[in-house]
Design a protein around this nucleic acid. Structure first.
Lengths: 171, 171
DNA sequence: TGCTACTTTCAGAACTGATTGAAAAAAATG
DNA sequence: CATTTTTTTCAATCAGTTCTGAAAGTAGCA
């Protein structure tokens, strides 16, 4: 019984570590892990107690997880508290993360590159310097758009059939 | 002329921002950007001057970029200084990043999950709690192994033909 | 070998982002 | 509407990273 809790705790800790190196805050990843392996909805207080974190911290990260679409609120009738449940389908969870990272990490860079390119175009100083910069930015932009498209399509396929198929295709 | 520098500066700044939200330090991403759009090798001093950073900072992040395989040293004959050049092929750069992130972000979680699962197995307390945890961890592990395999294969194809092909396959 | 040019290291400063906890706000209850 | 319960906010604090700059280390050269 407490052995299982021990393993859970270990999993939560690893998932938190992973979050850290993915640029996601540790607590957010830990809450996510906790809700993934919990088969009952948990209240803010449950989460505070389990992870030894403050109310404010729990609240903030729960909001963030909801805004990512990785967990959702759930109300129990006859209980004022809010409860939270994690997305149970691993594939859906993955699609959500891909979509969200695309939006937060890829799209802004594409926009910025487009602006840079616009400006290089405007300059009529068609010197070597400008030409080289432009071709490099073009190349990067084309690449990022491709990555963007790939993430878009993968994340829209709400099925786990696609990746195995791709894997077969690739040598 | 200085217009081009202005655009360069903008690009470097965006790339640095991107680094930040990818969990990579800002300066490292900026140096990478600088070397990507520079058509000549740059010395540590060039980089310090361009980005207004200290020698220690430049040195440290140059080391890190080399360890990622994103830039390399280059020596000019008759010059004691070290110069640095960025990988010019965008596709190769991408493969490097995928490989590196897989190694740093996916593999450790797979190892941790395998350990957790090993422990759940050991416990003979075959209660509901343990069963549920095990099935969840199994699911996550299977998924991560798939992602790992995909990253492995994509990053081994040192060609930009693959992704367009995949894109065509997907609806 | 001593001189010079350059690179690396590292202790502390500065910065950034995460966390707390108490107070304010909001929502449910009777 | 007053009371109670729960959620949200936010200024202050804390922790972890990054950055600096000077000192130590290394390597080429005469």
């Amino acid at each position: 019984m407490s052995d299982v809790s021990e393993v859970k705790r270990r999993f939560i800790s690893s998932w938190g570590e992973m979050g850290t190196c993915w640029g996601i805050n540790r607590t957010m990843a830990q809450i996510h892990a906790l809700l993934m392996v919990s088969h009952v909805p948990l209240s803010t207080d449950d989460i505070m107690k389990e992870l030894h974190i403050s109310r404010g911290n729990a609240n903030m990260n729960l909001r963030d997880l909801i805004s990512w679409g990785l967990i959702r609120r759930e109300v129990k009738i006859g209980d004022r508290k809010e409860y939270f449940v994690g997305e149970k389908d691993v594939w859906k969870m993955f699609c959500t993360i891909v979509r969200e990272r695309k939006k937060r990490e890829i799209e802004p860079v594409i926009k910025a590159l487009e602006m840079c390119l616009g400006e290089v175009h405007d300059k009529k100083t068609a010197n070597e310097e400008a030409r080289l910069l432009q071709s490099k930015l073009d190349e990067l932009l084309e690449f990022l758009r491709m990555a963007d498209g790939l993430m878009e399509k993968i994340s829209r396929q709400e099925s786990n059939k696609i990746v195995p198929m791709i894997l077969k295709t690739l040598k």
